[in-house]
């Protein structure tokens, strides 16, 4: 990859284009890492809330703080995604679809948290667990939509 990039730089007289390429690739790796982090966090949240369901307990403050953390991660993913699209990345599944799923991913866990605050039983915790599983599923779709190659 390094060889190919450097040879392209020599061949191309338009030197202004080349500095943006490494930056872009670095940002692509950030997106991949963020997706993995969000997925793991979502599944941990699901397990944690599932545990509360099994113990017949409603969600507590710590569950809601956990939901907030997962939401912030999903929000960071959306922001990085927007920055990368602004830098010229074309999601293979379509830009509109990517943004729709990324916004959905941000809203999923807060919606589950809201429902778990209304339902102060074990079933509220079950909703929190479902929210985590749904977010993890959304992350799988986001990876597909974003496309394999980071460039």
């Amino acid at each position: 990859m390094v060889l190919r990039l450097s040879s392209a730089r020599i061949e191309s007289p338009h030197a202004q284009c080349s500095p943006s390429v490494p930056l872009h690739r670095a940002a692509g790796e950030v997106t991949g890492a963020l997706t993995a982090v969000v997925s793991v966090a979502a599944l941990l949240l699901a397990a944690w809330c599932g545990f509360a369901t099994a113990r017949d307990q409603p969600t507590k403050d710590w569950h809601l703080i956990g939901m907030a953390v997962v939401t912030v991660l999903a929000l960071a993913q959306l922001v990085v995604g927007i920055v990368e699209i602004a830098n010229g990345h074309k999601p293979t599944g379509g830009t509109v679809i990517f943004l729709a799923y990324a916004v959905g991913a941000v809203l999923t866990v807060p919606a589950a948290g809201f429902m778990s605050l209304i339902e102060r039983t074990r079933w509220g915790s079950a909703i929190g667990a479902a929210g985590g599983v749904v977010l993890a599923a959304l992350e799988l779709r986001l990876v597909e939509i974003w496309g394999g190659g980071h460039g």
Binding site: G104, A111, M115, E119, W123, A130
Partner: peptide, 18 residues
């Protein structure tokens, strides 16, 4: 729409949107 029903409400809400 309460208890286990609230979980169904959440999932039906999700699938309505999806």
């Amino acid at each position: 729409g309460e208890g286990p029903g609230r979980l169904l409400v959440s999932l039906y809400g999700l699938f309505t949107v999806a």
